[in-house]
Design a protein around this nucleic acid. Structure first.
Lengths: 192, 192, 192, 192
DNA sequence: CATGAATGAGCATTCATTCAT
DNA sequence: TATGAATGAATGCTCATTCAT
């Protein structure tokens, strides 16, 4: 939890760098983002970035972790619903709410996974971890809903979302996300 | 038929360059692929690449078109089946057959679309075109199968594939593709 | 005269190439003009340029000669005046008539001389020849007007024009040329 | 005074780069000068040039400014004379002293203006600024000498110099400069 | 901890010239 | 003569990473 043990009492530079990296990677892609971009977004002098992250890849890892954290946060908020089905639909609805930015730039996690795969095998571990957050969560919910094929359903559900995010992004059409998430909600309702 | 109208009557350099680009982009990503990589894969002197493609982006466009062509080819072969349902399942099966390479590197088209989106808006048109090939095809089939929501089904079907490709790739697990494509086949069968 | 003895019976390619070179060099400068530019302006296939000009520098030489020819032509037309003074003023007036294009791009000969000086010492001979055309002509006229310092006057007159061309070009102000040429005409009138 | 506010407190690299650029541009022309040439003249690693100047054009701008500064310096020294006429003649004499290098390579400012005009419209602003330094100065002097047509005289005087520089350079004849500057001095004396 | 500066390997692109046919 | 294609040496520019202070 205290990943900032070694560093300053709260200058917040590390946090700003991670946020800057997330934003830059999302908007321009990892490869086209320079450390100078991140430093400037975080308002941290370029030379100082090195103190917090030895390499650009460490920044990618941190961004991935931050995305995983954000996903956990979102899922936590879905947990206020009573039934597994309601919780699953809440997750789907949360995905749907991002439709505009996702149609413009893709899913932040999905695009990062895709790019990271071509970048460095070690980074893929972080991507995997981020991806597993919603899958594991959904699996638990499906299981609680009594589905023995919970894992497949969870994977399929998240795949449907990642796929529509990619297509809606390429086609620049947010309505595709709306329709698909509605379909997914109906599908969840229809599960026996 | 004579696809090399503009250049060379059969040296095949253009074709080799496009193939080299497809391969390199797929394996290393566009950004990490140098023109020298492509030239060397195609066994064409670096300076000569320029004669065929004015910019790297034109090579990306050509690779996208080649992917679209390959997809059309595959769909054509699925058309030997009698019923729309059989044809749709043939497409899904064809996707499934790629599971190993897709788990290793992702869907060639999907990863290219994802990368292109961060690269240049003009390239997105080519990505869109490539993406529409299977969607349009599947829509026609669903329609012939009597489904009024053919478009949504087509988009959903291809999204499911793109999503599972991304997840299987990140998780390096080809079995996910197998399971998902089976599920999709069953789903096609279950359509009324 | 028959500089095209060795070449075609009148296909006019050589002429078109020289004109294309003159135009391209004037508009973009020698260094920024590619042989492909010249070929395309002349509507001659690139590979064919080589048949007429072994090197780019030979095109520069030919352009310089063509400028000298044009200058001679202009001076010939000034010779219809009766007195040396009238002829000199006719030359100055002819210069003045180019004010707009000169303010936009400089004197075609002057800019070429300037560029050629940094390019290749051998080319300077051609530049010198082009420059001497109006100077020699003016010297003869000044001499006929009875001036013993005819040479200096001729050089000074042409220098004044070249200088104002450079300044008007950099300042993008054609009116400077108008004022200076008027001043020069008055000065010619004032000579005893 | 502390001209290196932005970068380095005294390494002098920026200064060396500008000087290197001035020299290289003067001797070889902008187009034929590579950044590597400038870097090597300044004894600065190539990659480091970018830290000081984002583009080659910025180096051109800096060179132009440095020329303007040098011109101002020269004019300042001409100001020790008592009368406007003496000051103007001092300027002309200073020009004349450069005759040998000017006959060999042209006027540093004039040739740069000429080249810049074909290079980039934005650079022309810097060229204009450099050109205006002596013109504005001479105008003030002519005005102080009581000439109502001070501006025209100033432009004409500088044009005469630029023109003779171009001609002397193309003809490789420094004596032309000597004669012309003498003539200009006499002309200044003759002004009522 | 902070930071301006430095570094060098690399990349897309350009183009005069050449050549096979 | 004509010409599409080929070639290779450059060139401007980029950037992750390092380091001295």
């Amino acid at each position: 939890m205290e990943q900032t043990k070694t560093v300053g009492r709260g200058s917040g530079k590390r946090e700003r760098l991670v946020e800057g990296a997330q934003g830059a990677f999302y908007e321009q892609g990892v490869e086209r983002t320079t450390l100078a971009d991140v430093a400037s977004r975080a308002d941290v002098p370029l030379g100082n970035v090195y103190y917090y992250f030895k390499t650009k890849d460490q920044l990618v890892e941190a961004a991935l972790e931050a995305h995983a954290d954000a996903m956990r946060e979102m899922l936590r908020s879905a947990e206020r619903h009573r039934t597994p089905r309601a919780r699953l639909k809440a997750m789907v609805r949360a995905f749907g709410e991002q439709r505009d930015v996702v149609a413009q730039r893709g899913c932040p996690v999905g695009t990062l996974c895709s790019e990271v795969d071509k970048r460095d095998d070690e980074l893929v571990a972080g991507a995997r971890a981020a991806l597993m957050v919603p899958i594991d969560w959904a699996e638990r919910e499906f299981r609680e809903a009594g589905r023995p094929d919970a894992r497949d359903l969870a994977v399929g559900l998240f795949a449907a979302y990642q796929g529509i995010a990619l297509i809606a992004n390429t086609l620049r059409d947010p309505s595709l996300i709306t329709r698909e998430t509605r379909r997914l909600e109906r599908w969840i309702d229809s599960l026996t």
